[in-house]
Design a protein around this nucleic acid. Structure first.
Length: 264
DNA sequence: ATCCAGGAATTTT
DNA sequence: AAAATTCATGGA
């Protein structure tokens, strides 16, 4: 199957630290979201895909009209610069459970290692899909602390074990109907979830586009661009971003993160 | 307030 | 090739 896309980059979107359950050979990405396995590759303005419907794919990759509206609201010159550098970067709309597990693994880690954790967790707790592929583990299925540790999750294993026993798809879905602050507080109540991870889950899987996850890269970028390299804490950065970028802070964050990480 | 855990990946020496 | 640093959460 194929469809045309405008101003979109599969590579930048998938490799910008939002999503970790992918493999690629050449230019073809093999993705797994829960029990769904699909492939996508891009050739100029043509997207080729198998194993997923067009509407689901476009939603998952964040290819929709919101993007232009959001950009029009972000007049800031630094954001414009980052946007011009990577115009195809989009905010994804992922499965909340998989997103939550991914970002609990993300604490004090890096993209390659998170990908390793995801792969091992799937092989250990996910059901077999054939051809050496495994589904992502369902909520409740990661019920063995030692085996979670064996997935190279380290000190995060106890967080995953706890979350596995308390969170369900329904619990996550209900967050969508709450105000941002309330949904964030609920997530922060989970063992191993603080501001940064809560904001990642809210932004990448639950549609809260005002969320502004602050990690070391964003801290660097924000400090350099808006605080004249003065000392600032994460709360101050979040507050500043909320004032400046309002309900589209998440997109601003994604551009700044990618732009700063790939060498500003 | 400061230090550490788990540890693969990444960067620096 | 080897050594030092990275990274975010919770507990002491």
């Amino acid at each position: 199957m194929k469809t045309t896309v405008e101003n979109f980059s599969l590579k930048h979107t998938l490799e910008s630290g939002q999503f970790f359950n992918y493999d690629y050979e050449g230019d073809c990405y093999k993705l797994i979201q829960r029990s769904s396995r699909f492939t996508v590759k891009q050739n100029k303005n043509m997207l080729h895909y198998e194993g997923i419907s067009k509407s689901e794919l476009l939603r998952f990759l964040g290819i929709n009209q919101d993007h232009k509206i959001m950009l029009n609201d972000l007049k800031d010159k630094n954001i414009q610069k980052a946007y011009r550098a990577y115009p195809g970067l989009r905010l994804m709309n992922q499965d909340p459970w998989q997103c939550l597990v991914s970002f609990v693994c993300s604490s004090a880690s890096n993209i390659q290692k998170i990908r390793l954790n995801m792969k091992k967790l799937s092989e250990t707790f996910g059901k077999k899909l054939g051809e050496g592929n495994y589904a992502f583990p369902e909520p409740g299925s990661m019920n063995d602390l030692q085996r979670i540790k064996d997935c190279a999750t380290g000190f995060r294993a106890k967080y995953l074990f706890s979350i596995n026993n308390t969170v369900t798809d329904k619990w996550l879905a209900e967050l969508r109907n709450m105000p941002y602050e309330q949904a964030k507080d609920k997530l922060k109540g989970l063992y191993g979830v603080s501001d940064k991870i809560a904001d990642c889950v809210l932004l990448f899987s639950l549609g809260f586009k005002q969320a502004f996850p602050v990690d070391v890269w964003i801290e660097r970028a924000m400090k350099e661009l808006y605080f004249e390299n003065q000392k600032v804490n994460h709360d101050q950065i979040r507050e500043f971003a909320s004032q400046k970028f309002s309900n589209h802070a998440g997109l601003a964050q994604q551009y700044l993160y990618h732009w700063r990480r790939l060498g500003a």
